[in-house]
Amino acid sequence: MVDARGMVRRRLGLRLWLSGGWLVLLALAALLAPWIAPHNPLEQDLFTSRLPPFWMAGAEPGYWLGTDSLGRDVLSRIIHGARVALIVALIAGTATMLIGATLGLIAGYYRGWADMVISRLIDIWMAFPPVLFAILLIAVLGTGLTSVIIAIVVIDWTRFARVVRAEAMAQGAMDYVASAQVAGQRRLGIMLREILPNVLPTIGVLLTLEMGIAVIVEAILSFVNLSISSDDPTWGGMIAEGRTALHRSWWVLVFPLIALFLTVLSFSQLGEGLKDRFDPVLR
């Protein structure tokens, strides 16, 4: 049967490559930031403030994407901002995964009181608006990269716990687990050797999605000026600054926004692509 829908979808089969490509590019930019950034991202120069991007009248050579109100180079700040974004994505994403997946696995496989407690905790967490929760945590912990990472882990572990719990429950009900029990394996052994490998693809997909979420949460926190110190370049901070001077220098908002947009989209498209390819459950 000819399905035009499938053809449209297949044409997007390269989304895995595109999103992966962007993320690799970003990682390289972050690693090599001091060497490839054309300017010092913190260097202020009021004589070159609010320069437009290269194709517009009044642009200065060397400032490809223009400068902000303090004369700082937008491109260099985006490149350096990629460092914060990717550090948060990697560390917060991984930590969230470790904690959330562990709790979910325990709740889903051991059931009983552990499940009771964890499920109730998830219920409670679901009753918080996540952004507000994160901001509250930052207010208490103080600003800084560590606080941002802790905040993300604290607000988002439920995302892993919910899915992994359901998945572990489903796997636990299957015959192969029963036969492992009959064979005399210990509960912990079954959980780690039988259940975990079957849940891993799901966890991998969630991790990709979580990295995108971590990037956006960091950007939101910088946007409300609660992430790391306001001097260091972050995309969210640049967006916040651009928002206030939108009509005079739109490029201060637009370029970091594009970087953020592509990064978040890439992480989620990567996750979706992995899901289609490897994970029969989430599909």
């Binding site: 829908r5 053809m7 449209v8 979808r9 956006i216 978040v264």
Partner: peptide, 21 residues
């Protein structure tokens, strides 16, 4: 039809991007 495919792709994009953006 292709329209349904376009709707699917659009929905997927809309879902990937959070409200902040």
């Amino acid at each position: 039809t292709a329209t349904e495919g376009a709707i699917d792709v659009g929905n997927g994009m809309a879902l990937s991007v959070p409200v902040f953006l």
